[in-house]
Design a protein around this nucleic acid. Structure first.
Length: 167
DNA sequence: AAAGTGATCATG
DNA sequence: ATGATCACTTTG
């Protein structure tokens, strides 16, 4: 079943937690379809979250984060890896969920490699080349832990348990 | 443990 | 125009 956009229309930490176990559907330009279950996510929660890209306000790059829930945010990290994020919450409130892992690919850079996602999906919306489905599966347990790779953030933000992993 | 890799953003 | 900084992966 297609998921109503309401799963993303809530604070990023809640959305991140609920997205674990859902299915990501990638439709390629050549007609191919790839379906994978989300196993790991992370929440980035607004300008007050010093780990969030929008913590320094609007820039050309972060503008996408200010869009409505369901917008796709893709950016290049370390010159090599595309990171896939789903924008959550109301417009003008920059929040997103990073897809860190799916079945068959652990690590955000590998997820985008597997699904052939790059900058061309940035600032598009779910429902076309990429969409979400719910097949009724419920993870046995979802663990919460600190986010990865955010050593630049304030200690209290580093400590937040905004990484969610299916167990 | 460390390099590889390039867009982005804040400086000048 | 230049330089620092990365929400990572792979290799040794």
């Amino acid at each position: 079943m297609t998921i109503p956009m309401s799963i993303l229309d809530k604070p990023a930490p809640e959305a991140a937690r609920e997205l674990v176990g859902k299915v990501l559907v990638r439709r390629l330009p050549d007609g191919g379809v790839c379906r994978v279950r989300i196993t790991e996510t992370e929440a980035y929660y607004g300008e007050s979250d010093t780990a969030c890209h929008a913590c320094h306000g609007r820039t050309k790059r972060t503008e996408v984060l200010y869009r409505p829930a369901g917008t796709i945010y893709v950016y290049l990290c370390y010159g090599i890896h595309w990171m896939l994020n789903l924008v959550t919450g109301p417009a003008d409130d920059p929040q997103a969920v990073l897809i860190r892992g799916v079945e068959g690919a652990s690590g955000p850079g590998r997820v985008t490699k597997l699904l052939r996602i790059d900058k061309s999906l940035n600032d598009t919306v779910l429902g076309g080349a990429l969409s979400l489905e719910d097949d009724g599966f419920v993870p046995e347990r979802v663990a919460a832990s600190p986010r990865i790779g955010i050593g630049y953030a304030a200690p209290e933000d580093q400590a937040r348990l905004w990484r969610f992993t299916a167990m």
